[in-house]
Nucleic acid binder design. Structure first.
Length: 824
RNA sequence: GCGAGAGUGGCGGAACUGGCAGACGCGCUGGACUUAGGAUCCAGUGGGGAAACUCGUGGGGGUUCGAAUCCCCCCUCUCGCACCA
């Protein structure tokens, strides 16, 4: 950069660090509870501090929340805007496995980088509230919450089918498995039954579903949570076994199709398989079960075109008509949902239809309206029940539509003791243990094969030191690296004093992020998770900004913990996050996803170095709507620096002094109007998080002021304030040069005068048959007659009327006149 | 396959409850100031046309005085879910 170029640029490299130091020294962004002052809790999803540092995608969400925070401060709110680190997790640990360097060391380094980058971007966090999930002072309370869950029976050990990832040497939650592979690393995952810690999130399924009504979230996220919980209402029906004592219980959402069941299917893992297997089938069944057990989820998916299964040889009896139904096993029926068994109604279920076709099983129509020889008829709205009368004629739903039929037959089943109403959820209990080193230890010891919670006074259970981080467990014996540390594992039961073994699994990464927003309220309280008065003051989070990738995982888990904390009186609100916004993805300059392998990653350090933090912040917001996916364009950042240069030159002359063009003049009415329009637009857009259009309006305003030789302060001071949330460094600098001693961080946001916003003349569009022919100036409020008479006299309008009769005149005051004409 | 969202200039994107399509920025063109311009300032910039005009918001229908906006059908893209009985 040549010296001459530098002259026309505002000196961001000098200004920005100076103001960052000022804010830090003066504690400008410290948040302190002030009774009576309205609060605003503006939260970012705190990051996992990876080795790569921040990229401009992170910065988009952080900038947005920072702008809102700064704006709200100027609107008189007491703003809480904190930041911390979700620092347990796989990458640091995998790095440790590879290099032997303790994850605590790399984590600390990465955090230092993140913090430096955030400060450099001018983010107005209250750094006094910084938290770190790996800090024993923090995870002590993560463990404390676990104890509460354990005490309430919401944490338990069970033999459950889990997702075992051999490559990572750990189990994973359903939510961490994407298309049969681990979300982290993309390694293959297999299903295995294992004894593991599980959290009973299903006990909260209804509340998690219902309370979605209370929050203002993106519809897509709302919908995803709803689908993930997957509540469905139906009935459980008991089918007596033929020749064997016992019942086969199934769940169905379509009890109205009970008369159409032609066979039954069990999941391969179902406990009744053995009882129902005929000697002749034993070998085939065993082979099928073994094959199914070996299949990973990935393989199951690849094979989903063809429905496989084996007949067991046994039968069950349909309780409505006494028919003997053959019982099969097939892996399209899942052990984890419902009862792990279904009644197959091929006429009215697409999966059963495909299976029946493949295995030559009968298909029976019991809802008229489709053609069950061609495909399953599953329409719930249309069609009436047929062939649905008991053999003795005592009960029938024939002729009824589905809704009515379902109610009737369910009542009948209940009365007869053959079934009952039932609700099922897709949501499963949350597999909570990981066979890893770098996570929170459980506050649990095992005594005589029984899990016991440690007393609160013994918290935190600190993560023991080691230099061997590699999990060496197998699917038969999944073991955390902690299991090898016998000095740590072998302990005494604090109650009985008898020998005990510590639980050696660790918690998953989600644990720490389930409640971090509460610790920010009272980050170093040694007595409590959070002081109740502080909790009441700050909660709930008013605005929560973070990536859509957490739509299910983090946001569902955190809501679950929050509700438990609500139940035990730790928090006062049923939901933690009121308004939620997901920032969109920032793509590389080439329009593809930023990735190190492609080499299109934009590092904020580089762009801040070249253009300054203010320019980067402004550009991040100017690219487009916050939620949209949009490509980075360095040229666009240059455009923004030109804008900031123009703002600078409005107030500062070539020698760097306050410009002599500034005057105490009253602004012209036109300029005053643009000012008030700008205040209104920027204010409304900030309230609606429409940062891009707010910036566009600021540009328009600056463009209008630029040609002025004499520039009234009354036009410029509000501009500086309006710009401040977006570009705080340049704004602070200009504000100071304008003679203000105090930082503008808490200055009063400009107000607009509605009377000054509207112009007294308006442009009215004149259309003929909907086509624009002229635009005319009128005083505001001109009536239809006035507008029409001028319009009809206008040559540009008149020449389109020749040979036609003017019929209807549509007049939208101050906007438009449309003349509807027909041939004469 | 199911669910949600989105398709507007060369590019990123504007457009309130239907009312002047393309704000603002990038890029581009021309000019001014300059030894110089990758600085700055001024003017222009959807396509076609000399102009009058005309065509234009993924494609095709429709409603309306009037549609980017509302309705129907189709195409494309993005993101979820994926045998949940």
């Amino acid at each position: 950069m040549s010296p001459l170029q530098t002259m026309s640029r505002y000196p961001f490299a000098e200004i920005e660090p100076r103001w960052q130091a000022y804010w830090e020294e003066h504690g400008t962004f410290r948040a302190v509870e002030v009774p009576g002052q309205p609060k605003f809790y503006c939260l970012d999803m705190f990051p996992y501090p990876s080795g790569a540092g921040l990229h401009v995608g992170h910065l988009e969400g952080y900038t947005a929340s920072d702008i809102v925070s700064r704006y709200k401060r100027m609107r008189g709110f007491n703003v809480l805007h904190p930041m911390g680190w979700d620092a347990f997790g796989l990458p640091a640990e995998q790095y440790a496995v590879k290099t032997g360097i303790h994850p605590a060391i790399t984590t600390a380094e990465n955090i230092a980088t993140f913090r430096r980058q955030m400060k450099r971007a001018g983010l107005s966090y209250d750094w006094a509230r910084e938290i770190n999930t790996t800090d024993p002072g923090y995870y002590r309370w993560t463990q404390w919450i676990f104890l509460k869950l354990f005490e309430r029976g919401l944490a338990y050990v069970a033999e459950v089918p889990v997702n075992w990832c051999p490559e990572l040497g750990t189990v994973l939650a359903n939510e961490e498995v994407v298309e049969g592979r681990s979300e982290v690393g993309g390694f293959e995952v297999v299903r295995r039954p294992m004894r593991q810690w599980v959290l009973k999130i299903t006990a909260y399924a209804d509340r998690l579903l219902e309370d979605l009504e209370r929050v203002d979230w993106p519809a897509s996220t709302w919908e995803m949570q709803k689908n993930w919980i997957g509540r469905s209402i139906g009935a459980e029906v008991d089918f007596p076994l033929d020749g064997v004592n016992g019942n086969l219980r199934v769940f169905t959402t379509r009890p109205d199709t009970l008369f159409g069941a032609t066979y039954m299917v069990l999941a391969p893992e179902h406990p009744l398989v053995d009882a129902l297997t005929a000697p002749a089938q034993r070998e085939a069944v065993a082979a099928y079960r073994e094959a199914a057990a070996r299949k990973s989820d990935l393989q199951r998916q690849e094979l989903d075109k063809e429905k496989t299964g084996v007949f067991l040889g046994g039968h069950a009896v349909n309780p409505v008509n006494g028919e003997r139904l053959p019982v099969w096993i097939a892996d399209y029926v899942l052990m984890g949902y419902g009862t792990g068994a279904i009644m197959a109604v091929p006429g009215h279920d697409a999966r059963d239809w495909a299976f029946a076709r493949a295995h030559h099983l009968p298909i029976r129509e019991v809802v008229a309206g489709g053609d069950v020889t061609r495909e399953a008829f599953v329409d719930l709205e249309h069609g009436v029940a047929v062939h649905s009368t008991t053999p003795d004629g005592a009960f029938s739903i024939d002729g009824l539509e589905a809704a009515e039929a379902i109610a009737r037959i369910t009542d009948w089943l209940e009365a007869a003791g053959k079934g009952r109403r039932a609700v099922n959820y897709k949501l499963r209990d949350w597999l909570f243990a990981r066979q890893r080193y770098w996570g929170e230890p459980f506050p649990i010891v095992w005594v005589d094969g029984e899990a016991r919670g440690l007393p609160e006074e013994q918290l935190p259970v600190k993560l023991p030191e080691t230099d061997r981080f590699k999990p060496e467990g197998t699917s038969e014996d999944p073991q955390s690296p902690l299991a090898r540390l016998s000095d740590w594992v072998e302990t005494l039961d604090p109650v009985s004093g008898r020998p005990a073994r510590r639980e050696s699994n660790t918690m998953p990464q989600w644990a720490g992020s389930c409640w971090y927003y509460l610790r920010f309220l009272d980050p170093s309280n040694p007595e409590r998770l959070v002081d109740p008065a502080r909790e009441k003051y700050w909660m709930p989070v008013d605005l929560y900004i973070g990536g859509a990738e957490h739509a299910v995982l983090h946001l569902l888990y955190a809501r679950f913990w929050h509700k438990v904390l609500f139940d035990i009186g730790v928090v006062s609100t049923p939901e933690p996050f009121m308004k939620l916004v997901h920032q969109g993805t920032v793509l590389g300059e080439d329009g593809t996803k930023m990735a190190k392998s492609v080499g299109n990653v934009v590092n904020p350090d580089d762009v801040i170095e070249r253009f300054g933090a203010d320019a980067v912040r402004l550009y991040e917001m100017f690219m487009g709507p916050l939620e949209a996916t949009k490509p980075w364009n360095t040229r666009g950042v240059e455009g923004i620096t030109r804008f900031l240069d123009r703002v600078w030159r409005l107030l500062v002359d070539e020698e760097g002094r306050l410009s002599g063009a500034l005057t105490g003049d009253d602004p012209s009415p036109d300029h005053l109007r643009t000012l008030h329009q700008t205040i209104r637009k920027v204010t409304e857009d900030l309230d609606g998080l429409r940062f891009n259009t707010a910036i566009a309006q600021l540009m328009t305003y600056v463009n209008e002021l630029t040609p002025l030789k004499r520039r009234p302060r009354a036009l410029l001071e509000p501009l500086v304030l309006l710009l401040a949330p977006f570009a705080p460094h340049i704004a602070e600098e200009l504000w100071q040069r304008l003679g203000h001693a105090e930082s503008l961080a808490h200055a009063t946001w400009p107000a607009w005068d509605p009377a000054l916003v509207e112009a007294d003349t308006v442009t009215v569009a004149v259309q003929v048959n909907g086509k624009l022919r002229a635009t005319l100036e009128f005083p505001r409020g001109a009536d239809a007659e006035t507008v029409a008479s001028v319009a009809l006299a206008d040559e540009r309008v008149r020449r389109h009327l020749e040979g036609f009769v003017v019929g209807k005149r549509i007049h939208v005051p101050d906007k438009l006149l449309n003349l509807v004409i027909t041939p004469r």
